[in-house]
Design a protein around this nucleic acid. Structure first.
Length: 308
DNA sequence: GCTATTTGACCTGT
DNA sequence: ACAGGTCAAATAGC
């Protein structure tokens, strides 16, 4: 008895130390990535620094996965709480409000439509003080099936262009499913033989959420088998680490360029501010390819809001 | 009958 | 106390 407790404690300590080391390593890699990104911006031409940048992204991804795997072993998941506790009246409203407040957010402004590559279910609408338009609340349709914690808020832009929607994403996708831009759901890897390899999108590095995923708590499937498995049968194939770099300013630029020839949009793209925020997306705490779930043909501006 | 949306009520954080 | 976020019953659409 005493012996097992001691062993458990030792394992816990090792796990803790490993976690700390990984976190440290990840921070260093992130800093390197940051520096490279800044140099890339300063240089203007992405050619020479692109390789190292991709490499650091790969390192970051590995750190993410290692950390996720480490935390995934921890007992007691948020899913458990969500699954069983949600019906309990006393718990009402508690989980969601706190999750949103503590998670990092990705803020996106899109034109005309709120479609992205996921299937959302509206669960609320609220008049916001000092705002002309109400805010709409959506969560992933597969929340019940897969315990997917992703949510988003959509609000019509108040100034200038009313067709612009401000979309703020929260939480992570544990569902491994995407919806077609036209709305039809598509199952990643379709025949379910790889259903264990659930796709997870990390909209931030909210530690609780990463740990909460339990066995499926992988970060964004940006590398290794995840990307290959999930990307193959999807209409919006994710970038593969081996061949195609993930979203960087230049890549996003290309994507937008292909689909939106509008001159005003091109002006936006070439503006340094946007370039910075595009890159910022990658330089943030958790790197992921936002192009996987945002249809760039409707994208106007997006930026990270890391407040909170 | 099933599923998605609406909307008032409730809960939490500030 | 207030604002924002979520729940869940009622309702609508298929």
């Amino acid at each position: 008895m005493v012996r097992t407790t001691a062993l458990a404690a030792t394992a816990g300590e090792y796990s803790n130390a490993a976690s700390q080391l990984l976190t440290k390593g990840r921070k260093s890699a992130a800093r390197l990535h940051d520096l490279l990104g800044q140099q890339l911006l300063a240089a203007g031409s992405p050619s020479t620094l692109h390789g190292p940048l991709v490499l650091t992204e790969q390192i970051l991804c590995c750190f993410d996965r290692a950390l996720a795997a480490l935390h995934g072993g921890a007992a007691g998941t948020e899913d458990d709480a969500a699954g069983s506790g949600r019906k309990c009246k006393p718990e009402r409203g508690s989980a969601g409000a706190r999750a949103s407040a503590s998670s990092k957010r990705i803020r996106v402004e899109k034109k005309s439509t709120m479609h992205d590559n996921f299937l959302w279910r509206k669960y609320g609408q609220k008049e916001i003080k000092n705002s002309k338009y109400p805010r709409f609340y959506y969560r992933c349709s597969y929340r019940d099936d897969h315990g997917c914690t992703a949510t988003k808020q959509v609000q019509q832009s108040e100034d200038d262009d009313p067709s612009l929607h401000v979309v703020t994403y929260f939480g992570e996708h544990f569902c491994g499913r995407v919806a077609d831009v036209d709305g039809g759901p598509v199952v990643a890897g379709d025949d379910g033989e790889e259903s264990e390899e659930l796709m997870v999108i990390s909209f931030g590095s909210s530690v609780g959420a990463a740990a909460a995923g339990g066995a499926s708590a992988y970060p964004w499937p940006c590398c290794g088998e995840d990307a290959k498995n999930s990307g193959a049968s999807q209409p919006w194939s994710l970038p593969d680490w081996e061949e195609v770099p993930p979203l960087t300013a230049s890549v996003a630029e290309e994507l937008i360029e292909e689909s939106t020839p509008e001159p005003e949009l091109m002006g936006l793209i070439s503006s340094p501010d946007l370039e910075y925020s595009l890159l910022d997306l990658e330089l943030g705490e958790s790197s992921f390819g936002i192009d996987g779930f945002i249809s760039f043909d409707e994208l106007s501006v997006y930026s990270i809001d890391n407040a909170r």
